[in-house]
Design a protein around this nucleic acid. Sequence first.
DNA 1: CGCGATATTATGTCTGTACATATTAACAGA
DNA 2: TCTGTTAATATGTACAGACATAATATCGCG
Lengths: 226, 226
Amino acid sequence: MTGWQDIEAEALRRIHARAWPPGSTIPHEADLAKEFGVARATVNRALQALADAGWLDRRRKAGTRVALHPVRKATFSIPILRAEIEGADSVYGYRLLGRTLEEAPAPIAARLGVAGALLHVTALHLADGRPYAHEDRWVNVAAVPGIMAVDLAVASANEWLVTHAPFVRGDYAIGAAAADDAMAGVMGAAIGAALVTVERTTWDDTAGITAVRITFREGHWVRTVI
Amino acid sequence: MTGWQDIEAEALRRIHARAWPPGSTIPHEADLAKEFGVARATVNRALQALADAGWLDRRRKAGTRVALHPVRKATFSIPILRAEIEGADSVYGYRLLGRTLEEAPAPIAARLGVAGALLHVTALHLADGRPYAHEDRWVNVAAVPGIMAVDLAVASANEWLVTHAPFVRGDYAIGAAAADDAMAGVMGAAIGAALVTVERTTWDDTAGITAVRITFREGHWVRTVI
DNA sequence: CGCGATATTATGTCTGTACATATTAACAGA
DNA sequence: TCTGTTAATATGTACAGACATAATATCGCG
């Protein structure tokens, strides 16, 4: 019982065992430092980690309280589709379906905060030669002009953007959409099948970068651990 | 430029500005400490936060490298449905549809690691009197026997479990399901509508606690910021 | 008893030093 | 030139002490 990670684990055990019940104030850092025979800074480090994870609420002077309802979080990594497909031991494939410079629908233009023509890219991502995800993307070429020189028949817009267009904020949503004729056709799904759909928009310091809608194959689930 | 948060912000600015490009090693902590006129521990604290957020990879001796592809994470809070509905300024309502003690389907029994009868609860969560989410839940009564005494006609199983059954791990998945006759009827959705479906299973130290499937109303999206 | 001012105090942060650990660099020998 | 051993070193951690900040406790007065 010497390191901050040991102390973190013991504190978490006491929370789970209800020795420190939800809503209650736990012993002070100085007291816990005495109990464990370590420096106060070491206790502080351990409790900081638990607070970051949502188990504790901490305020100067007010003390440290076990969160009443620990806000449980589910964290999904936003993978590059290639990594996701290859990570499942499948062979990744990519097919560009369309690439135009055109005005985006009003909601997307509003979201990206741009007027004028955007690069519109549609593509298919394959796993073992079969459709895995359909991508429908709008890119603000004023923000990332370099993409105009990229051969999107061989490399997906996302893979290029990940390395050339760092974003400072984004939004992300998961929904469900019924496959219409076109989507059912391109994805090899039943007409009307419920497909997981992800929408993501990213911004850099000054402008919207890209808005994308990804529609996954029938039966796809987005999974994580809590 | 004195506190660890200032240093964190400046480091992040350099990452975004590509002064420290992806894959490259950044200056050593000791050097940055000299540059900023602070203690090395202060630089360490700032870089730790950036590493926790995924911007940096750090190894003893090897130094600190800007993540090649920062793994972006989307973090969703797993709210109590009442809080979610009330948080959207709607009136929360709850209706118990069914409560039985019976054997669970094999996959669920396997997942919870239990044999024998489980408490099976179905319920409807309402927003402004209209269906918001349908809940289909299995509870391992051997793990949480107290639930047998709970009047689930007035309080949802989840609200009781949150305060009485802390879990130490869980899994979480978001998918899409087409509304069949029964679901369309109870949710007031079109038959065949694509509905966002969440499945969650939680375990305590020794056993599975509960497995739940929540089907949201038509048009529901799970949203967060990156 | 209630309110405002002051004192106290628990967490947040910073510093400097020391030691631990994992990784890279350097060196010697085959 | 390659391999194994040793040395050097950058981050990880711990300690002790100090100061800052925000919140609670205490005290005095009307």
